[in-house]
């Protein structure tokens, strides 16, 4: 099975909810569990929020692109912006590291994407933009049981 979806929307915070719900709706054909849906929504929300806040500095006028691909039981999600790009990707991915503490950012965006998806790749060129590529296999039992 193969299925692809692309969308483009304005980089404004009102679209964050729309983006995560749209991706969650697209993946519904794989019959994900509620937990898997929450995982995907959180990860997409983080990536889109990063594009808006960091990619475009919260300034309106930019666009965020999302491309989703379902291949067998794996969801691929790409979140792209043509904004600032990231100078030091390794540093940006460190837990609790943030360049915008004044905006109450927690520095947990990338760690949450890593925690809730199976694979995370960040491609970025300073001044040109950032693409976040995430993958998640749907319908497999997590190999680490929840501690609770």
């Amino acid at each position: 099975m193969k299925n692809e979806m692309k969308m483009e929307f304005d980089a404004i915070s009102a679209n964050e909810a729309f983006a995560r719900v749209a991706v969650a709706a697209f993946v519904s054909e794989l019959d994900p569990t509620l937990e898997e849906v929450s995982d995907i929504k959180t990860a997409v929300s983080e990536a889109v929020t990063n594009a808006i806040i960091h990619g475009y500095d919260g300034i309106e006028g930019g666009k965020v692109n999302i491309r989703c691909l379902i291949e067998q039981d794996v969801l691929h999600v790409e979140v792209m912006d043509k904004g600032n790009g990231i100078e030091d990707i390794e540093k940006a991915m460190e837990p609790l590291f943030t360049t915008k503490p004044e905006l109450n950012r927690s520095g947990m965006g990338f760690p949450f994407m890593e925690a809730f998806m199976d694979d995370l790749e960040v491609l970025s060129v300073a001044g040109e933009g950032t693409t976040v590529i995430m993958k998640k296999k749907i319908g497999c039992i997590p190999w680490i049981e929840d501690e609770e």
Binding site: S45, T49, N104, S106
Partner: peptide, 13 residues
């Protein structure tokens, strides 16, 4: 019903 890292930022702040 939904929270992302923004919620963590609110609490931490």
């Amino acid at each position: 019903k939904f929270m992302d890292s923004s919620g963590i930022g609110i609490i931490l702040g």
